[in-house]
Structures are given as structure tokens and as C-alpha cells.
Design a protein around this nucleic acid. Structure first.
Lengths: 172, 172
DNA sequence: GTCATACTTCAGATTTTTTTGAACAATGAC
DNA sequence: GTCATTGTTCAAAAAAATCTGAAGTATGAC
């Protein structure tokens, strides 16, 4: 039965030795499921979920302790979330320690995430798709195939034009 | 440097012993990249790309031969594409052999794919998210957290309402 | 300037996904 | 009805993604 793919049909997972309340676990499961669709790893989703459900900003050590996760994973997870504009840090005076919280708009965070995944793929594709169309033309491909490939090229171009409008680029 | 995630930073791949023209390879790479974003396996994307660039419908054996892929992968890949309404088969009279071609609308195919991934996740989440909000309320979470969780619940509900409108369900 | 703190790095271990192929099942041409 | 053809299944192998933790680096409190 198991289809060859799609994150849908996943095996049960080894539970992490986390120290979470039941509703924190459910929130984490929600974010893990959604993150899976975009190929974001479990550990990253768990960190985000923990921060999302927390009334206070949390520091590195507390995140590690509550999720029962290695330092490496916490470090990389926080970096990913930070780089995608999904979390912010605050620092208490007289301490080097950073404390993290989710950025106010989850919607913006999601769009950032999508952009960062889709845009590079589209950019890489532009010249390749043009070459494919040219080669197929030279090859005497059927009108139907040429039509398909033409549409693909136009889609790619339009998607690239639209992308910057969807939301202001990384800065700004 | 390698981020903890995102399909972006992938290692080089073992080339498949395929027998494709250069432009067919580039088309396959495009579909593989895009499929990767949605977690669709390489083999499935390669099959789709081959059909997409082909002037004639192709049969099982020809797909296997051109892509240098196992029977199992071809079978599972075709099943996935068929189940998601992305390919159609035609049969020549007097032969059991099916020959495959992409469905006319790639856009529709993509929406089908997205639906099949996102909808089940949303449905599973509805009761869980409600429980999370209730538990947090009982727990005396901060107004800010309650606000976040409330928004999450509303998003989920709206997404579920919208989904059926996006495109007619599997049948119809 | 010193150095303990706070994180980062990355090679290897682990987990999960994907692919393979040999055994098996279904079907329609005859 | 028979059986070669066509495709499926699934356990095991291979590949890929993710996680770990010990060693290393950077920084700001003092």
C-alpha cells in the first residue's frame, strides 16, 4: 500500500526524550507535520513549536533540555529559523545569553520559507528550460511537446516576476 | 555551511544509467528539483519528465529502459502519478500493454499533488489544535500565546473551508 | 587582557527514505 | 480455458537526510 513517496505515509518515529506537557507535544506534532510538507526537519519544527507555545523567550540551554536534543541540532535549528526570519532574539543586560521567540507574523515566516526554497530552483531553471525548448525544436519534436515546453518556460518566467512582489525580499 | 535542512543543499547523486538526450536530462533535472520541494522522489519526477518531453505515449518497458530504472520503481512511480491524476494511459487494440502520457494540465496536476499532501495534515490537525488551545487556556498561558494559538486554529479552519473550492475533489 | 561562557562545527553514527529485483498475481489474446 | 505477457509486491540493500557530541572558536563580563 505504501506509496513510493510523499511525506504522507511515514513510519512511526522514535520518540525523543523530551520533557514536554501533552499539549506542547501536540503543538509540536502539528508543526512537524506541516514542516514535513516543505522538507523542513523534525528538529527545526520542534524548536519552533516550543517557542511558539512559550509565554517567555527561551534560551539555548532550556531549549536543549526541554526537547532532549543535542547541542548541534539546537544550534543548527536556531540558525535555520533565524536565517529564515522566523525567530528573533532578545538579550538581558549583563549576559551574553540570547533568548529566542517567534517573529510576530507566522504568515510572513512561511512566505520567507517558501521563497527560499522555490526561488533558487526557479532561477536555476530559467536557462535550462530555454535550452530544453531549443533542443526539442531542433530535434523536430511534435507540436504538442513544443507547446508543453513553451508553457513551462512561460510559467517559469512569470513565477520569477511575481516572486519579488509576493513579499519584500530578505531585507527591507 | 550546509544548513540543517531544506532540500536546497543536496549532495551529488549517483547518476542513473539512463539513456537520455542532453535536453531530456535537463528537463528531468528541472522536474526533480521542483518535485524535491514537495518531497516527491527522484524516480517519480524522472518518469514524469520523460513522459512530459515525449511526443508519443510510452509503455512500461520503454520507460524502464530509457531511465535505467528497476521494474519496482517504474511500477510504483506510475502508480503514484496515476493516483495523483498526473498521467493517463491509452491502449492499442490487441495489446494489454498500456502507454502513458502526461495529463493535459500540469497546473491541475500540481494542485492535486498539493491537496493530497496538505489536506490530510490539516484534517488531522483540527482537533489537536483545539485541544492545544484549551490546554493552554487552562494552564494560564500568557495572552500573547493564547492569541497565537487562536490564530492557528482560525487559519486551520479557513484553510479547510477553502480547500474544496480550490479545485474539485479527486472525482468529478 | 583574561578566561569562562555561549555557542558553532563537522565527521561519523543513526534514522528514514528510496530503490532494487526476484517471486508472485492478474488478465486478456488466442 | 490456457498461458505468455504485463505488471505488482515487498523484504532487503542502497542512498540520503538528519542528528549527535567532542573538539574548537568567538565574545563580552570582569
Amino acid at each position: 500500500m505504501t506509496p513510493p513517496s510523499s511525506k504522507s505515509a511515514r513510519r512511526p518515529r522514535r520518540p525523543r526524550p523530551a520533557d514536554l506537557k501533552p499539549h506542547e507535544v501536540e503543538l509540536a506534532q502539528f508543526f512537524v507535520r506541516m514542516a514535513g510538507i516543505l522538507g523542513v526537519p523534525r528538529s527545526v519544527a520542534e524548536i519552533y513549536a516550543l517557542l511558539y507555545g512559550s509565554s517567555q523567550p527561551l534560551d539555548f540551554d532550556r531549549i536543549q533540555a526541554r526537547l532532549g536534543m543535542s547541542k548541534g541540532s539546537v544550534s543548527q535549528g536556531l540558525r535555520f529559523l533565524r536565517d529564515h526570519g522566523m525567530i528573533l532574539s532578545v538579550r538581558a543586560a549583563g549576559s551574553r545569553r540570547e533568548r529566542w521567540q517567534p517573529t510576530p507574523s507566522l504568515a510572513t515566516s512561511l512566505v520567507n520559507l517558501l521563497r527560499s526554497q522555490v526561488l533558487p530552483a526557479l532561477e536555476q531553471s530559467t536557462p535550462a528550460l530555454r535550452r530544453v525548448l531549443e533542443a526539442a525544436t531542433a530535434d523536430g519534436a511534435s507540436p504538442e511537446v513544443l507547446d508543453r515546453l513553451g508553457r513551462l518556460n512561460r510559467w517559469n518566467g512569470r513565477a520569477l516576476e511575481l516572486a519579488p512582489l509576493l513579499l519584500p525580499p530578505p531585507e527591507a
